[in-house]
Design a protein around this nucleic acid. Structure first.
Lengths: 230, 230
DNA sequence: CTTCCTTAAGGTGCTTCCGACACTATGCAC
DNA sequence: GTGCATAGTGTCGGAAGCACCTTAAGGAAG
């Protein structure tokens, strides 16, 4: 814009990581995400999305996975590109274009997470004051998650291989932030054919044992997105 | 992957441009797009999407607009980011990450198009054998267009300020590739409140004069996408 | 002027989907 | 057994979508 003292353009890959963890007060599942404290300028000390420079010999999604593994210990299966952010002034003094991915983490994957000294998890709806334009990015990723869960069976990505319909419903309720009618939810899910019963039941529940289901990827709904799932 | 003789990473911005033009045989409106003949290696002589390197002092969308104006003379209003393509091997010998935009062109904007020597328009469904991974990109853009027109009032972007509902329906029919019931189409469009009557009618049609409408952006449907419309 | 043709615009009935809610089933705790 | 909690099924009414019919309003042809 004004003078042309821009640094050379560089390309970074960052990721918005979503996992379900119990809400601090209510205990109900809620959307959380890990952030990394910046240890250098710009925005030193502030929280930011995990990310790093794109290497010459790495695909975009591979770069996102590598950074995630390095910073948080996570190796999630579901990974999808979110958006490329590249405004000229989004990083003071530099010109950085960030290609941002988003990912959903299963409980068993979440258990592998190593909370390093400079990594901390936050409720996704409450993060504010992040470095760069990362507030906007998180907001955008949340919007995408909430939109996409309504027309695509991505909720499975929050669950392990076998799950009850109540657990699946809890995922929807956590993401959408409202309760769903169990009866209608059951019918909708079964009608779309994205889950199939395993024949087993969950026992030890102090009530009628619910049937267990697995994700049925044999008949995926037509989706538009290029999904980069390992 | 193998050896590390990769060139330095570079960033390009390309655009998939959609306009409606009459089909060569049927004469009905169809989706067309302009392509640029490559005048250097790699892929010299093949057709490719209009695009160019990202400048240090340009936002992503601005870069897309600048390239479009330079190569095709187009200055479309609707412009939206499509996807970032960055596989290591997508450009022989180089490492190029392309951030791809897509755009819809109105008839009056289309009239400004200058078909340079190395620019030619093609029916979008028939393009094949493009340079780089541009076949995939065009396919992806078409999918996005067809998906998005079903839940977002982007069809207006193909039309001038005033239009009849029959013209709007022709846009949908061209994009979706099938005929729609005029009566039901009218009700759906009016119900969603994205158009409003101007009070005027189109005359000289050899049948009952249809009412003219304009796009009503005062009440846009909630959309997820970050739209970069000038 | 009358008739015919074409598309505009509105009406009607059928089916499907969705949400609210009632009801039955089946485990555990006591 | 009784009570309790959740699993799972049934039912009903409203909303939305779709196929198709009817009427409106212009021009063209005679």
């Amino acid at each position: 814009m004004s003078d042309t003292t821009q640094q050379r353009l560089s390309l970074a890959v960052s990721t918005v990581v979503f996992a379900l963890r119990p809400h601090l007060r209510t205990g109900r599942p809620t959307v959380w995400l890990p952030l990394v404290r910046r240890i250098r300028e710009p925005y030193e000390g502030l929280w930011a999305l995990p990310g790093g420079p794109l290497e010459d010999d790495q695909d975009l999604a591979a770069s996102a996975r590598a950074t995630l593994a390095r910073t948080t210990g996570l190796a999630p299966r579901y990974l999808e590109q979110l958006y490329a952010f590249g405004d000229v002034d989004r990083s003071p003094g530099d010109r950085v274009v960030s290609i941002v991915y988003w990912t959903l983490v299963r409980p068993d994957e979440d258990a592998q997470a190593i909370d390093g000294e400079n990594v901390e998890w936050f409720p996704a709806d409450e993060v504010r004051g992040l470095a760069f334009d990362h507030d906007v990015i998180v907001r955008y990723a949340l919007d995408r998650l909430r939109a996409k869960i309504t027309y695509s069976p991505i909720a499975h990505a929050f669950l392990t291989d076998e799950f009850t319909l109540a657990q699946l419903r809890e995922v929807y309720e956590a993401v959408l932030g409202r309760r769903l009618d169990p009866a209608n939810f059951r019918r909708q899910i079964l009608a779309q054919g994205t889950v199939e019963p395993t024949g087993r039941h969950l026992t030890g529940t102090s009530h009628r044992p619910p049937a267990l289901y697995r994700s049925n990827l044999a008949r995926p709904r037509a989706t538009l997105t290029i999904e980069e799932t390992a």
